Simulated assay, not measured.
Amino acid sequence: MIDVYSWPTPNGHKVHIMLEECGLKLGRDWRIHAVDIGAGDQFKPEFLDISPNNKIPAIVDSNGPDGKPISLFESGAILLYLASKTGKLLPKSDRAKFEVLQWLMFQMGGVGPMLGQAHHFRIYAPEKIDYAIKRYTNEAKRLYGVMDKRLASSPFLGGKQYSIADIAVFPWLRSWQNQGIDWADHPHLKQWFDRIAARPAVQRGVAVLADARKPLQDDKAKETLFGNTQYQKR
């Protein structure tokens, strides 16, 4: 059994989708533990034991590579672990594998951080800072353009086959409106997005904990996520 500590955010959805795409079923092969990041659950000692950076998601697999339990944090590492464990969604040949991995790193180093900043300054920041809004909105548009160009000549981000690269990117694009994106500017990416969204395993993955998340309007939750609480020594 794999215990998944998560919340319905893009990084959480990555792992939920991956588990379902690998044929691992919620309630049979894995179970979910809600980590309400607005309430500060990510700072609890028991969660920090498995995720020292106080970020979701994290997993504990009771049957690790050597038959012993293993805990992992960082969504990209978890995707790679699950691909290795199940033999799915990551090509075997070096050439095809590294083609996928470069796009996984593109998500982890670019899409996630930059779109996250776009969300913050466009939606959540207490002050509307024009410079920051323009900077991260323009960077979001640039990244969408990179992906659109790639998908004009490739059916999937990592190449000919659906892979962990697609799973990593997709949840981040579900909030395209909050990022200042017009799909009309990215037709190839939009076609890809719709194909991924239609996959049954993806639909099951994004439904996990979906009812638990509410609009971030509570001042205490905002302080927990963005204020001094985030920076306390633990």
Rank of each mutant, 00 (worst) to 15 (best):
K68A: 14
I78Q: 01
R28T: 15
A83E: 02
M108N: 10
Q42P: 06
H33W: 02
L82G: 00
E74I: 09
D49S: 15
K88D: 02
L82M: 06
Q107Y: 08
P113F: 03
K97M: 10
W103M: 07
D29R: 09
C22D: 04
A34G: 11
L79D: 01
A58V: 04
A34S: 13
M108Y: 03
I32G: 14
G67V: 06
I50T: 05
W103V: 03
P57S: 12
S84Q: 15
S75P: 08
A77V: 13
A39L: 13
K85E: 00
G87L: 07
K55N: 07
I70K: 05
D66T: 05
V100I: 13
L89I: 06
D41I: 10
F43W: 10
L90D: 01
I17H: 03
L19D: 03
S75L: 13
V60M: 01
P65Q: 12
E46P: 11
R28D: 15
P69I: 08
Y81T: 05
I37P: 03
G38P: 03
A96D: 15
G110Q: 08
H16T: 12
P69W: 05
V111D: 04
S75T: 11
G110T: 11
V15P: 01
I50M: 10
I59Y: 00
P57E: 09
V35D: 03
A39F: 02
S93Y: 02
D66Y: 00
A39Q: 13
N63P: 03
D61S: 07
D36Y: 08
S84P: 04
L89M: 07
K44A: 10
G38C: 07
A34Y: 13
F98N: 15
D36L: 07
A96V: 06
D94Q: 11
W103K: 08
K92D: 06
F43P: 08
K25E: 15
D94C: 05
I78K: 02
R95V: 09
S84R: 15
E46Q: 15
N63M: 08
P69V: 10
C22N: 02
F47L: 09
A39E: 14
A77Q: 15
G64Y: 00
K85Y: 00
L48K: 15
A96G: 05
E74G: 04
G23E: 10
G87Y: 01
T86W: 01
E46N: 13
G67A: 12
G67T: 06
